[in-house]
């Protein structure tokens, strides 16, 4: 039971990083960024390219590359499309997603590649009879620090306050002098940094890379956001932990005949939530964004 809980916390932390990266952009500019998955892919392959360097250096370089990729996407594709409908933005992100996937396919080929970034993190420790992976501890800890950091940034810095204002009413924020370009670029930067860290943890957990590795994480991120309630930033993180808990519990306790259909059940649940509780499982209508 406690083992399952640690598992769910670790998985939930990973989902939370992904979901927050997506939710940040959605709350500010109404963009559902499908290409967020490809930021994770870029992160994974960057980590592979820097394999052999000390882990901290490789991770720092990965974060730098993914943030640069996110800023490039913003500048070249999303800034010209700003103000377009949510559907157009979503299709733009699909186009970027296909583009990056195709690019990775061209450069790295379709075959899965494996990489071991764990090093000493692969070990586990015994705590009161439980075996806890050092990786799980690292994921939970680092995510905790990043979430607190984000909360501090949004509360205590002028740019953070501007971002919260933009998330509530972008037009009014601009009318007060908030620079749209700066706020959006910052959001993309944070989103990219979170995607990079998520990529490191994801690759550390699975050890494999494929050009389409970003698809499942981005879909899970969407699910977490819907669970928490569309457009509410911190609810996305809560949704991520709930999703992880559900997923671990279903895995552990679902009868074998149904286990194969677990994902189908999760996605059907999402549809039901959207139909009957569009503001999330614990949410109430708030603000204007849906």
């Amino acid at each position: 039971m406690a083992q399952n809980l640690i598992n769910a916390l670790s998985l939930g932390s990973l989902y939370a990083l992904i979901a927050l990266g997506i939710a940040l952009l959605f709350s500010i500019m109404g963009l559902i960024n499908f290409a967020h998955g490809e930021l994770i892919t870029i992160g994974g392959y960057t980590l592979l390219a820097f394999h052999g360097l000390p882990l901290a250096v490789a991770v720092a370089l990965t974060v730098a590359v993914v943030v640069a990729a996110a800023l490039t996407m913003e500048r070249l594709a999303f800034r010209p499309a700003r103000g377009a409908s949510g559907e157009t933005l979503l299709m733009t992100s699909f186009a970027l997603s296909l583009l990056v996937q195709g690019g990775v396919l061209l450069k790295e080929g379709a075959d899965p590649q494996s990489v071991n970034v764990l090093g000493s993190l692969g070990a586990s420790v015994d705590v009161g009879g439980m075996t806890i992976g050092k990786l799980d501890v690292a994921i939970i800890g680092v995510t905790g620090v990043l979430l607190i950091g984000l909360a501090w940034f949004l509360r205590a810095t002028p740019l953070g306050v501007q971002m919260r204002a933009a998330a509530e009413d972008f037009t009014m924020a601009r009318a007060l002098g908030v620079r749209a370009d700066r706020v959006v670029a910052t959001a993309f930067g944070v989103s990219g940094a979170f995607a990079a860290v998520a990529a490191v943890f994801l690759v550390a957990r699975t050890g494999t890379l494929t050009p389409s590795m970003g698809l499942t994480p981005v879909l899970l991120g969407f699910v977490a956001i819907v669970l928490g309630g569309l457009g509410r930033l911190w609810a996305a993180a809560i949704g991520a932990y709930v999703l992880a808990l559900l997923s671990v519990m279903l895995q552990a306790y679902l009868p074998t005949g149904l286990a194969a259909y677990r994902d189908a059940l999760v996605y059907l649940g999402i549809i039901v939530i959207l139909l009957f509780r569009p503001h999330g499982i614990a949410g109430r209508p708030q603000g204007v964004r849906v």
């Binding site: 002028p158 306050v161 501007q162 919260r164 204002a165 924020a173 007060l176 002098g177 908030v178 620079r179």
Partner: peptide, 8 residues
């Protein structure tokens, strides 16, 4: 925070 926004 509302007041400080306009300072930008």
């Amino acid at each position: 925070e509302n007041l400080s926004l306009a300072a930008c």
